[in-house]
Design a protein around this nucleic acid. Structure first.
Lengths: 224, 224
DNA sequence: CGTGCGCGCCCAACCGCTTGCTCAGTTCGC
DNA sequence: GCGAACTGAGCAAGCGGTTGGGCGCGCACG
């Protein structure tokens, strides 16, 4: 009997060997390791469903078919798991946003590009987006996650400047508060994570296109 | 000395007598009582800030200047508090929605009316709206809150039918999915609860009017 | 070819703390 | 002296996190 008991049903004990992890010099705070990445993905799925605070380390361990204590062989805290998820999200989306802006097209196309970028991240980054909505206030109170506010400010700046530029060029209505408009757009996109299910009848692409149509031209018919 | 210790700073012990509580025959599960209503309002404020799960019964008790156990003289569980808040919200908004629809005006005016109704509830029902966004998944998993899904479906039906009617009459664009459009509108309104502060520089009325403009005609300038 | 051992992985038990909730008993205005 | 309001202590359950040790695989060494 290799595996005596434990493993109450649920998950296959994972074959143990698997592949890897050569070095991992003690200095760097843990490099990759496939097993580790796998655990992060499992945790992400749970965060995407329930948020960060509502997910326990025992939930994560159960999903992986191990005990909660075993998680601490890979991570030094529950926070460091979500940190990894959030950092990955911000790195990726901010790079994508910047690329969209640096393309230097007119504000209308740029905004459309930003919206498409945001919707594109809905699927791969469900966990991060859910956490940001459910646990934003909680995380903000911790020094470790101070970078969240910084990144958010930077993102807001990009959107607001683009909107303002569009107004100056006469592309967007003058009677809109750029900040307010940004928030409306942002929230409406991210909140979709609550009901958007990856395998459903509509993908995030067409969702984005639908949203762009309504946002730009409204729901009225436009013979006027 | 009446109050020995406890009451660690924070709140005035509330004068105790106050008014209170005639009947409340044992049969009915607790009728009003001003004290009780006051406690519900305090709890609602906390729910509006942090959500349901993240608020503890001790938080609520602290805010009222009493001990957590004392809450159970008024309520039989934390859930029954939020239940009261949610039920009040749904009862009110669904009645208002129905009145708007029964007025029988054309779809464009009806939709505008629904939007105004929703924005009007933003201020008095902040707690319920916050809870529905933060704890929807959690609450849905409990038999007690099964009515949430039912009510939501009913609401969705009202909106979708109105949108579809507007399309048939040529008022709204044909190339919009009514369900998707409803969700977009709904999300955009409710999500405002996250940054909307009652005493702020713009009230919920002008916010609603602003949104109606954008929703109908989009953010584009409309010389086309 | 065999063997020992380092190491990645995990278990089992536990810590200190917080959670929602209970309940016998005290307080006090009517 | 009755009853609504509240106390004070405490419960079981669950939380994030810690610890010491055991297992088995692959590789270096003889």
């Amino acid at each position: 009997m290799t595996t005596t008991s434990a493993n109450s049903g649920r998950a296959r004990p994972r074959a143990a060997g698997e592949g890897g992890a050569r070095r991992r010099g003690k200095g760097s705070p843990a490099l990759a390791s496939e097993r580790r990445e796998h655990l992060v993905r499992l945790a992400a799925d749970l965060f995407a469903e329930k948020g960060f605070q509502a997910t326990t380390v025992r939930n994560i361990a159960d999903e992986a078919g191990i005990l909660s204590g075993s998680l601490y062989h890979h991570f030094d805290s529950k926070e460091s798991i979500v940190d990894e998820i959030l950092t990955g999200f911000f790195d990726e989306i901010m790079a994508a946003y910047r690329a969209e802006i640096d393309a230097g097209r007119d504000p209308r196309e740029t905004i459309a590009g930003l919206v498409r970028t945001a919707f594109a991240s809905l699927e791969p980054h469900r966990a991060a987006i859910t956490v940001m909505q459910n646990d934003w206030n909680y995380l903000q109170g911790m020094d470790r996650f101070g970078y969240l506010t910084k990144s958010e400010d930077e993102v807001e700046k990009m959107w607001v400047e683009t909107i303002a530029a569009g107004q100056e060029q006469g592309l967007f209505r003058e009677d809109l508060d750029p900040h307010l408009t940004y928030r409306m757009i942002r929230d409406t996109i991210w909140v979709a994570v609550r009901w958007f299910k990856p395998g459903g009848r509509l993908d995030s692409r067409s969702l984005g296109e639908h949203y762009i149509k309504v946002m730009f031209d409204g729901i009225n018919t436009h013979q006027r």
